[in-house]
């Protein structure tokens, strides 16, 4: 990791979002990239700092989070709902990370966009990348500034 402070900031943001919005927690910090099948999304931010937050998450973990978020059974979920959830998760993580980076000063988030979750490496080399073991799979969060 290039910057331990940013590394800790990502860990804090993931813990906060998972615990508050999804009633689940990080099982382990570190570990491997999400195994396939996986989904991905990214959100660009501009302001005092500018960059992109992208996530990749195991499909099974994404489905589990969607069920928890919506209070519905996994069997009843559509692929669209799961994809929307991955976008919203990226949105919340981006907002949480950027707010922690700059409590003062406005920033703007672009709309989340789905990306290929099967890609092991993004086209840009991320400055910070952290993987997490979570219920039913894993989640990787990358920050490019």
């Amino acid at each position: 990791m290039a910057d331990p402070a940013l590394d800790n900031l990502i860990i804090a943001a993931v813990a906060e979002v998972l615990e508050t919005m999804f009633f689940t927690e990080i099982l382990q910090v570190g570990g491997s990239h999400p195994s396939l099948p996986a989904l991905g999304a990214r959100v660009a931010f501009t302001g005092h700092n500018s960059g992109i937050v992208s996530i990749r998450i195991s499909e099974a973990a994404a489905r589990s989070l969607t069920a928890s978020f919506l209070g519905e059974s996994e069997e009843s979920l559509s692929q669209t709902q799961v994809a929307n959830l991955v976008c919203e998760l990226a949105n919340m993580l981006c907002g949480c990370i950027v707010s922690k980076m700059a409590a003062h000063g406005c920033f703007t988030l672009d709309s989340p966009e789905l990306i290929d979750g099967s890609t092991q490496e993004s086209t840009e080399r991320p400055e910070i990348r952290q993987s997490f073991a979570i219920e039913r799979g894993s989640l990787t969060v990358s920050l490019n500034e």
Binding site: G95, V98, S99, C106, F107, L109
Partner: peptide, 21 residues
């Protein structure tokens, strides 16, 4: 998701009555 103080101030000044991050 935007929890920056500047954004919260701006939205309250515009007329929002509450702000939840």
């Amino acid at each position: 998701t935007d929890a920056s103080h500047d954004r919260i101030d701006r939205m309250i000044k515009l007329g929002a009555r509450g702000y939840i991050s």
